[in-house]
Design a protein around this nucleic acid. Structure first.
Lengths: 112, 112
DNA sequence: GTGATGCGCAACCAATGGTTGCATTTCTGG
DNA sequence: CCAGAAATGCAACCATTGGTTGCGCATCAC
């Protein structure tokens, strides 16, 4: 009964820099490698690599415009990612609940 | 207005192998490096390294027992991790909602 | 005691997140 | 129209990390 999440998608949002990139892209409604690197503590080249990762898993799409490449978040795919996050969280929550119930049962048993 | 999640904790659960280790530990109520490596596609030594990471961020605690080292999930800390996952998810959701509202507003504006 | 079991440590390898440097394309101002 | 600035891509390189194998040490079990 493994979670079997899409590891590709998860590990794309697993990187802190990429999460912040998604934050910035959402806040500004898109951006270019240069504009992003201006708001992040990494170089433009690093940003480009991350955009490549995000693009491969479909979390962003790109629109070349002259000498710029404008990137925007793919809403549907990000929604999928969010769903996976909460799915894993929910499963762990459920397991914790079950453990808690068992612990309480043992406690009760010991008290009688 | 960055999310400012604890990157340490997030990246601990960011690794797929570590997530599966947490799954197994929760399902079995704990385990040793050897028992874990038996249920995962990695060697005991790799498991040990991951347990080190999980231990450093407080997601598991260990109880030496003879020649074995029994690891168990720290429920409170895992609950914190789950909270962070849903916090980030909620923020992205909120931004997506906002974007959707703006898009709808533009659409409405164009239609009149 | 001797052998099997569980573990830690060290060396090593591949992937990846980061950098710098340089060549290329596209604007833009005289 | 041309020269320089701006935005990008590409390649080489480095450090960290997730993985392996090999080995030595402690502990249990007969």
């Amino acid at each position: 009964m493994s979670v079997t999440v899409d590891d590709e998608l998860w590990s794309a949002v697993g990187d802190p820099t990429r999460r912040r990139m998604l934050d910035v892209l959402l806040a500004d409604g898109g951006g270019t490698p240069t504009s992003l690197s201006g708001q992040l503590p990494v170089t433009r080249q690093a940003v480009t690599k991350h955009l490549g990762v995000l693009h491969r898993v479909g979390l962003v799409h790109v629109t070349p415009a002259g000498r710029e490449r404008r990137y925007e978040v793919d809403e549907a795919q990000l929604a999928r990612a969010v769903a996976q996050l909460s799915a894993v969280g929910a499963m762990w929550d459920a397991r914790l609940q079950r453990i808690k119930r068992i612990a309480e049962a043992i406690q009760r048993e010991r008290e009688e």
